[in-house]
Computed example of a mutant assay.
Amino acid sequence: MSNSDGSETKTHYICQTYVEHKTGHDRETSLKIDNQFQYSTASEVQNRAERDAQSENCVGADAYLVIEDPGSGEVGLPSFLVRLGDVPEFDD
């Protein structure tokens, strides 16, 4: 991918897993990011999310991509490939 000024963009494929986290005196449950892994392709990241979502400690997993403009350092919003299990809501 190229920008109009000719600079290349980078696509990052991310797998992000979640665990339950109990907070406060009432032990309310929330989600907490457990791990993040970066891969080279969409199929690799999706396979990892599917594997991790089935593991005992993981309550959910996202596989997504973001596009970075190395020239400016800007990173776009995530584009989800799969969202499995209990994952946080995402508002654009």
Rank of each mutant, 00 (worst) to 15 (best):
H25F: 12
R48Y: 08
E89R: 11
E50I: 13
D69Q: 02
S55E: 09
S30T: 14
Q36V: 15
D5F: 00
V45T: 01
Y64K: 02
S40P: 09
Y13W: 08
D34T: 01
F37I: 13
T29A: 12
L65E: 07
R51S: 13
S72T: 13
E50P: 01
D86K: 14
G71W: 00
D62P: 01
Y18N: 02
R83L: 06
D5H: 06
A42N: 06
P88F: 08
K22V: 10
S2M: 13
P88L: 10
G24N: 07
T29C: 09
E74F: 06
S55N: 06
R83T: 00
S43N: 06
E89N: 12
F80K: 01
Y39E: 15
K32S: 10
K32D: 03
E8W: 07
L84Y: 04
K10F: 05
S4T: 09
D91K: 15
T23M: 15
E44Y: 05
K22W: 10
T41R: 09
Y39L: 15
A61H: 04
T41W: 05
H21K: 13
G60R: 04
I14T: 07
S55Y: 05
L81P: 00
E28G: 11
P88G: 11
R83C: 02
N57E: 13
G85F: 00
M1W: 13
Y13I: 08
G73K: 06
A49P: 02
L84P: 03
E89K: 11
L77V: 03
Q46C: 14
Q54W: 07
Y13V: 06
E50V: 13
A53N: 03
A49L: 04
R48E: 11
G73H: 07
D62M: 04
L77C: 03
F80R: 03
K10L: 07
D34Y: 07
N47Q: 14
S55H: 04
V59S: 07
D69M: 03
R27Y: 09
D52Q: 15
D92Q: 13
L77N: 04
D92Y: 10
T41I: 09
E68P: 04
N47V: 12
E8S: 09
D91T: 15
E89S: 13
G71M: 03
N57L: 12
G73Y: 00
G76E: 02
E50T: 12
E89D: 14
V87A: 03
Q46E: 15
H25C: 10
T23G: 14
F90K: 00
Y13G: 01
T17W: 02
S40V: 14
V82I: 10
V19M: 09
V19R: 10
D92W: 10
P70N: 01
L77W: 04
L81C: 01
I67K: 00
R27I: 05
Q36T: 14
Q16A: 10
S43F: 00
D86V: 12
E44L: 11
D86A: 13
Q38C: 14
L84H: 05
Y64L: 06
M1E: 12
E44N: 06
P70F: 02
Y18C: 06
L65V: 05
D26I: 15
I33Y: 05
H25A: 13
D69T: 01
G85C: 06
G60Y: 05
T41E: 08
N47I: 12
